[in-house]
Design a protein around this nucleic acid. Structure first.
Lengths: 197, 197
DNA sequence: GTTCGTTATATCGCTCCGATATATCAACAG
DNA sequence: CTGTTGATATATCGGAGCGATATAACGAAC
């Protein structure tokens, strides 16, 4: 994930580590502050793999040493690969998707829609799971467990709706029609919930 | 965090590792699926530190081996310490707080309110930061960066309101009056946002 | 009876974090 | 002029958690 962020920034202009950490925090609205303990080793790794290289810069003798890196053609390929990489279940994916979104401009509209859709499908699964958990906790959970589930459920629902808006916006802008299977999908569990609660 | 979850479950009844992983996923509504690569080493660590111990159980010769653990008095103390531990900035705290909530019933109402309040203060800081980032992105960010900020901002706002509800509920239930400083707090950045947008 | 899914423990390599160390430089105070 | 502070900049350490994988015992289904 950090590789994606670094490459995405270097795609715009060469930078050094410290600058990368600030830019990353800014692009993500402060939702992710990269640790130096991740950043510098990752830069090394990317350099080792030929995805970035140091700019031979004029650092000779001058001021404070700065190791400026730039992306290589190999790095460009890696960047696109990471951007489309299949999601990997779990809460790590939430952060990953945010980083992806920050660099969505580098993808063609069809791919963007595909990724948004894939993400939405994942959230719908989580929503169903949370709905089941909410119903289960209604019986034997305590007050805070119920609050936890219901809040998670509401937040996930909001995320799904948000993605729907982004998809719609993308489609109208590029005149792409929705696939036939795409009508207002309601999960079995959701329907049950709406009926019983 | 995993330590907290394990101890919280063992507080109710002795369990073995596999059972812990299922229970944890269930109590958190599937929002957190514990990896075995974390679980078993953590159990070992807790045992080494004297926070849990194996139940000498009747596993002798019988069926499939199960290593059943129970919490010790030392573990009980650790549990309460972890439950109140100061938050540590960053997205890891989101998950931590969820785990804490799942075991909030073990805390007295005043402490619960204090922790909820502390969490809300942290989210308000993030909200201010996101508001600033939103304004900055309105100028030079692309479409998706703006969407990212605004969504993060909305989600954080919803979380803050949710916490407010929980605090209110706790106060009315136990008849605790709100401190004097506690009126509808609006941050400087929020007020600016409301005026200009 | 064998194959498959679930239960159960364990380990490996990896990513990332938080704390910390160590410099350089600018700005400002005394 | 000197000293201190704060921002810039790179680096490393130990630890937490993950995902994949190995292993094995058991139940049930075929």
């Amino acid at each position: 994930m950090l590789e994606l962020g670094i490459l995405g920034l270097l795609k715009e202009q060469p930078m050094h580590g410290y600058q990368l950490s600030r830019e990353l925090a800014e692009q993500l609205g402060g939702m992710w502050k990269v640790s130096y303990g991740s950043l510098y080793p990752t830069l090394r790794r990317l350099e080792r793999d030929g995805a970035v290289e140091q700019v031979p810069g004029d650092t000779a003798g001058k001021g404070r040493r700065k190791l400026v890196y730039r992306i290589t053609p190999e790095g460009e390929r890696l960047f696109l690969r990471l951007l489309e990489e299949p999601p990997q279940e779990g809460q790590a994916e939430d952060a990953r998707f945010r980083v992806r979104l920050a660099f969505f401009r580098y993808l063609p509209p069809e791919t963007r829609i595909r990724l948004l859709d894939r993400r939405r499908a994942g959230l719908r699964e989580r929503f169903d799971q949370l709905t089941a958990a909410t119903l289960a906790a209604a019986d034997d959970g305590d007050e805070y467990q119920r609050a936890l589930m219901e809040h998670g459920r509401a937040a996930t629902e909001a995320d799904i709706a948000w993605l729907g808006g982004l998809i719609q916006q993308e489609r109208t802008k590029y005149g792409i029609t929705a696939p036939v299977g795409e009508r207002r999908r309601a999960s079995a569990t959701l329907r049950r919930k709406e009926r019983t609660v």
